[in-house]
Design a protein around this nucleic acid. Structure first.
Lengths: 146, 146
DNA sequence: ACTTGCCTACTATACTTGTAGTAGACATGC
DNA sequence: GCATGTCTACTACAAGTATAGTAGGCAAGT
């Protein structure tokens, strides 16, 4: 089963809109607009246009209506979108992770702490403990696990 | 001295052209075109247009002429450009490195080896040894190191 | 001096993105 | 049932990007 992901690109603004949907869940255009930070809140119809375009790109879908307003829902996961934009970036860095990583380190964006922390996480995952059970932190899965 | 970096954006194609200039150094449009991989070699005038646009963006400059052909040279470093595109990406990931890093780890793009390697590099840099003297790999700086 | 061919500068077109206006449909309060 | 206001669907437009064509200049060979 090949995922027919015809190279859709996402812009910053589109992702901001998706962020609202990922956080809040199904929303009307009005709700989306109201969830955008005041500092960055375009006209209602501007948001509408972006939502429509996201729909064309297959990133959101209309799930139902409330009154005469459509309710939109994400049709792709945040992870999928992040993967897409990351792929674009990696391309710009020569096509592989290495130059990107090198740049991150050299530019001082990655500190030793960052690295150690990630290493921890990874080690834990590889040990089969899966990643932190998002949500209540500190919550350790009771060993009883089926 | 504030760097007047008025938010210039770079596209993949523009970076490909810059890559040629960073590698090869001053080149004419023709030379740039010929250095692009055959698989991705647009018409001469297409390359020319991109170079002109890069010039407007202040990323390249004409340094001299050979015959009636202009020779272009990078006016910004690869690092600067990489920083710019990375900033854009980080924005899309919510504005900080953390979500980006988390994604890299979770998506399996960053392996333990990658991390350890980077950690090594960083440790060395912090120890004041500067970064790997790029070039012959495997070449270990003789322990004599001052 | 002429021809030939490459190069420049400009123009063109189609698509994407950010931004928003408008006309008409439709629900809701009275 | 009518007025009011919201929402949709469509249209518009400027900037940016990918792509390339064209006219005329200039240099090099003959």
């Amino acid at each position: 089963m090949i995922k027919k992901t015809r190279k859709v690109r996402y812009t910053k603004f589109e992702i901001e809109v998706m962020d609202v949907l990922w956080e809040v869940g199904g929303s009307s255009v009005r709700e989306i607009q109201e969830h955008l930070p005041e500092s960055r809140r375009p006209a209602y119809t501007t948001v509408q246009t972006i939502v429509y375009r996201l729909e064309e790109k297959g990133a959101v879908r209309r799930v139902r209506k409330i009154g005469n307003a459509h309710i939109f829902e994400p049709a792709v996961s945040r992870k999928t979108v992040h993967n897409r934009v990351l792929d674009e970036l990696i391309d710009m860095f020569g096509g592989s992770m290495r130059p990107l990583m090198a740049h991150l380190v050299e530019s001082g964006r990655l500190t030793l702490e960052n690295l150690r922390e990630m290493e921890d996480t990874l080690t834990r995952i590889e040990r089969g403990e899966g990643k932190e059970p998002a949500g209540e932190k500190g919550k350790r899965r009771p060993a009883s696990g089926k």
